[in-house]
């Protein structure tokens, strides 16, 4: 087990390093890094001076080596806008995003999974139709639009909730529901299809023939096996929630890492962008590692390999 975790950590680290490398070269090769953030009216002489001071005159490989060396120590340079370490600017926003993401994940698991199971056990019923409708809508409705529709109804029309910002529970409701809606759709869809597969298996028929109660068959026998794909999906889902947060945070001005990253992109503050990319890649890799570990616990077949 220890070796497995170590192996996964190493390959995760490789992915993160490659991601940082890709973004570094994309940003550097795209043009003069000083022109990217210097104000339009900066003089030629000042630009040359900034370039020399920040080491942009060195060969690209040297710059890369220096950047990676600093990055390994957690130093991604200073935010050009806020004049303080870029990683600090991003990391201080992490709690807001984690809070939003966790609430959305819990909501979508709590609603999506039972809805999918219900749709499968009562195949063709109204629950099945509701689950299908949500699944179809979830793939077609843009996240920012759903958020704005909620805002129109609950903030503008009814005045029940604040339009944006972070504060009490009432600030949380709309962003969390918007973010959760798409996860819920995916969980419902997957739970339904895996439950349908499992319910057709022989051992379920055996359990029913033995006269076990319906609920015991559904949750004790069928769901236990259907839960494996759901656990596998949760790793991917954490990635999708982070992705959704980039947009949803913008809609509701929720001050998380998605919000700070988009602001940094609009301000061409690429040190912050790179720090954010690293943080996203690390979170994604860790989420996948945890998924694999959880997968090993519920599926004895993979525990050995």
């Amino acid at each position: 087990m220890g070796r497995f975790v170590a192996g996964r950590l190493v390959s995760g680290a490789v992915v993160v390093v490659l991601a940082v490398t890709a973004v570094f070269f994309m940003v550097r090769l795209s043009g003069d890094p000083v022109l990217l953030f210097a104000p339009m009216d900066t003089s030629r002489k000042d630009i040359d001076e900034i370039r020399e001071r920040l080491g942009f005159n060195d060969p690209l490989v040297v710059q890369y080596g220096r950047f990676m060396g600093d990055a390994a120590r957690g130093d991604f340079g200073n935010s050009t806008r806020e004049q303080r370490p870029a990683m600090e600017v991003v990391v201080e926003r992490l709690p807001a995003t984690v809070q939003l993401g966790v609430v959305a994940l819990v909501l979508s698991l709590a609603i999506g999974v039972p809805l999918g199971v219900l749709a499968a056990t009562r195949h063709g019923s109204i629950w099945d139709k509701v689950a299908s409708l949500i699944a179809v809508a979830g793939q077609a409705i843009p996240g920012f639009w759903l958020g704005l529709l909620l805002m129109l109804l609950f903030a503008v029309r009814l005045g029940w909730l604040p339009t944006s910002g972070r504060g009490g529970v009432q600030h949380m409701i709309m962003p969390a529901i918007t973010l959760a809606a798409f996860s819920t759709a995916r969980y419902a869809r997957l739970a339904r299809s895996t439950m349908l597969d499992v319910l057709n298996q022989d051992y379920i028929r055996t359990a029913q023939a033995k006269g076990l109660a319906g609920r015991s068959v559904v949750w004790g026998h069928a769901f236990k096996n259907a839960s494996i794909p759901l656990i596998t999906m949760t790793g991917l889902e954490i990635g999708r929630l982070l992705e959704g947060a980039v947009i949803i945070e913008q809609v509701f001005a929720w001050p998380g890492i998605g919000w700070v990253t988009v602001q940094a992109l609009l301000n061409r503050d690429f040190a912050v962008v790179m720090a954010a990319v690293v943080l996203f890649a690390v979170m994604y890799t860790l989420a996948n590692l945890l998924t694999d570990l959880a997968y090993g616990r519920v599926n004895p077949q993979v525990r050995q390999s």
Partner: peptide, 23 residues
């Protein structure tokens, strides 16, 4: 395959925004 791994580790929209901001 490595490229696919790396791309999966960065949110699609964030990667697209970064590239768009650069090019």
């Amino acid at each position: 395959m490595r490229l696919a791994d790396v791309q999966l580790s960065i949110p699609f929209i964030l990667l697209a925004l970064t590239i768009n901001a650069i090019i």
